[in-house]
Amino acid sequence: MEILAVLIPISLFLGGIGLAGFFWALKSKQFEDPQGDAARILKTDYDDHPKP
């Protein structure tokens, strides 16, 4: 059972990273246009080279 002392903090830490990532995405306005972003990935405009 000693392994719990390691695993629980690890699971909380990993979850915390996920939460921090979510906050970052939220702050950088990545949820403003979900429908558009879903469609944007289908565009072929910059398939060959990155956007200048």
Binding site: P34, Q35, G36, R40, L42, K43
Partner: peptide
């Protein structure tokens, strides 16, 4: 309503003189 609409609108507008950039928000 679709990816093609976004490309058409954005490229069409960006090709105009004086337009710096155009971005479609499909949700709104």
């Amino acid at each position: 309503h679709c990816a093609a609409c976004m490309s058409t609108v954005e490229n069409g507008l960006e090709g105009l003189p004086g337009v710096l950039s155009a971005r479609v928000n499909l949700t709104l």
